[in-house]
Design a protein around this nucleic acid. Sequence first.
RNA 1: GGGCUCGUAGCUCAGUCAGGCAGAGCGUCUGGCUUUUAACCAGACGGCCUAGGGUUCAAAUCCCUACGAGCCCGCCA
Length: 530
Amino acid sequence: MADITHWADVIADEVLEKGKRHLVATGITPSGHIHIGNMREVVTADVAYRALVDKGAEAEFIYIADTYDPLRKVYPFLDESYEEHVGKPLSEIPCPCGKHDDYAEHFLEPFLAALDHLGIHPRVYRADELYKDGAYVEAIKQSLVRKDEIAAILKKRSGKTPASTWSPFNPICNKCGKVNTTVVTGFDIDSETVDYECSCGDSGTVPMKGGGKLTWRVDWPARWKALGVTVEPFGKDHASRGGSYDTGQAIAKEIFGYEAPHPIIYEWIMLGKKGAMSSSTGVVVSISDMLKVVPPEVLRYLIIRTKPEKHIRFDPALPLLTLVDEFERLHSSDKATSYDKRMIELSHAAGLCHTDIPFKHMTTIYQVAAGDFDRIMNIVKRAGYDTSNEKCIRELVDNVGNWLEMYAPDNARFSVQEELPVSTATLNDLQRAFLKSFSQILDKSGEMSGEDYHNLVYSAKETDSEMNRMMADSMGVSTEELEVKPKDLFKAIYISVLGQSSGPKAGWFLSSLEKDFIVKRFREAAEYRP
RNA sequence: GGGCUCGUAGCUCAGUCAGGCAGAGCGUCUGGCUUUUAACCAGACGGCCUAGGGUUCAAAUCCCUACGAGCCCGCCA
């Protein structure tokens, strides 16, 4: 089989045939909690951008927040008092929590933080600022002048006839502040103003600069031209014939004289077994929820490994652990193909921190330490991991803690019992003799590694070992009579420490506990008589 | 009704653009590792590539049709 080229590189090659300078754009409307589908868009854009840069293109990456879009309705998470704001641009509505400058910023701020977390650093534009700075004025003029042509394009492509009062430009009413209740009654190209009537009864004049916005289907192509967008990913919803890319393409070419950007169409992300993610059906995982449990690199990997046009199935329970494992294995594998390496490279991105501690190991460490960060660090240090980047480790610890709490299946959970578990009563004489001997040997020895612990357990069945002799003595039998099954010994360890009959790999597990604790616990367990 | 995308092992998916022996990981099973596993190593099992036609020396791959899944054609990104 020929070498497989990663889709991002395929896209970059296609795009490079059109030219060497590129502007990769992405954008969404911060009207509510920004969900995971949007994350795919941004990661997709970032990867395309990186692939372009890697191939020597002069590329830039921008993110446009559609802060000037009107609020469509009072969403379930909003207070009823927002009724009066429906129809106003998001940037002109008060913040729901009062801590941000405006409504748009309230949802934008955590999203931008998430982007940073993922190692994605586009230049950020806010649509309201672009409008207020006059970036759209030229496009607004052209659109108003050639309104009928645009309407004809919309009709031809989408089959829908725009209303007679339709205008590509929606003024913001001076009185009620709404942008979707006004009708254009005239305009003046020289003074750059637009006249309107509003359903609230007001009428007046607004400047083209910051006095209103272009309707979406015109706004998009206008933006391409104004900013020079050449590559843009968008959801498949825009992609069909008669959709906004289709009309945008025509408007860009025929009205603004601009070639539409290279499209990257992506599919939705499905959640577990519940189906497509959609806000209307309530099947939603917000980005912040996602980042609570998934290390950023793995989230990137999840998106990067699948071609944009295929849907992604995301299951935050055990399959997540598999995904993390797969990523980490690929990361350290010497069998990785060039394709694998490329995926790892793209998952990495600048600005992400990485620790060499496997996620799965951390699930054990975390539970051994009962989530206490100082104790976790001690264990990590003892296990010989790199602890220089405490911030990264803390991120991993947070992910693991949240995962255990929110999604982990029961068999992945355990807790070291503070007190001797009552189930210790079920231990038999051999198991007690083992724990007693183990405790004594450990008491007089130095620090032991996971492997030391492992070997010590197995030494119990060797007739010439110290452990074997001590157990025989303790039980009052000869070493020949002693019949040891390691399985029972491991069971004794788990029961006395966790109160359950199985647990994480024992040697390694014991080495992450305090030695003194083990000595004491095993002695107590050996002596315990109900 | 019209359009777009997808359909490959039990699961998640590569491979389709550029036709050339049907692939990976996970799971399962077997064996091994000083027989604990949720760790590691080796191997095995696992397929009508959704179905039916067509083109071709040769089709998972290209063309047509059907079926299934998701989405769009509402100024809703």
